[in-house]
């Protein structure tokens, strides 16, 4: 249980950064932290004691395996996260070119 709590604490650190920081760079880093915590939580959930990795080899034939389903879904989630990070960074660069700052409280005009 302590592992779940630590993982959730990591997620809450990300939420804290998202809510309190006014710097766009820090906000992007917060979303990355939340992503790590969510992925790690799902994989923690599929771990089995005394089980091997879910690849069939001669060495681990017949032994129990960890749950391959969360691993497969987290694999896709990690790749999506990279695309999202790239998109956020692109938006931040554009905003910096327009406003010459990363402070979100100074970005007030809606004009394109």
């Amino acid at each position: 249980m302590i592992l779940y709590v630590l993982c959730f604490a990591l997620f809450l650190v990300g939420v804290y950064g998202l809510l309190t920081k006014r710097d766009l760079i820090k906000i992007i880093l917060s979303t990355a932290i939340m992503g790590y915590a969510a992925n790690l939580f799902l994989v923690l959930f599929g771990y089995r004691h005394d089980a091997t990795f879910p690849i069939l080899t001669e060495a681990n034939a017949g032994q129990p395996m960890v749950d391959p389903l969360p691993q497969a879904l987290v694999l896709t989630s990690i790749v999506i996260e990279l695309g999202i990070t790239a998109l956020l960074v692109a938006l931040a660069i554009r905003l910096y070119q327009k406003y010459a700052t990363f402070d979100i409280t100074k970005m007030r005009s809606l004009k394109g």
Partner: peptide, 13 residues
């Protein structure tokens, strides 16, 4: 956690 594929993908990410 016995997830070598994920470790490699996370490293690349």
């Amino acid at each position: 956690l016995q997830a070598p594929d994920l470790a490699i993908v996370q490293f690349l990410f």
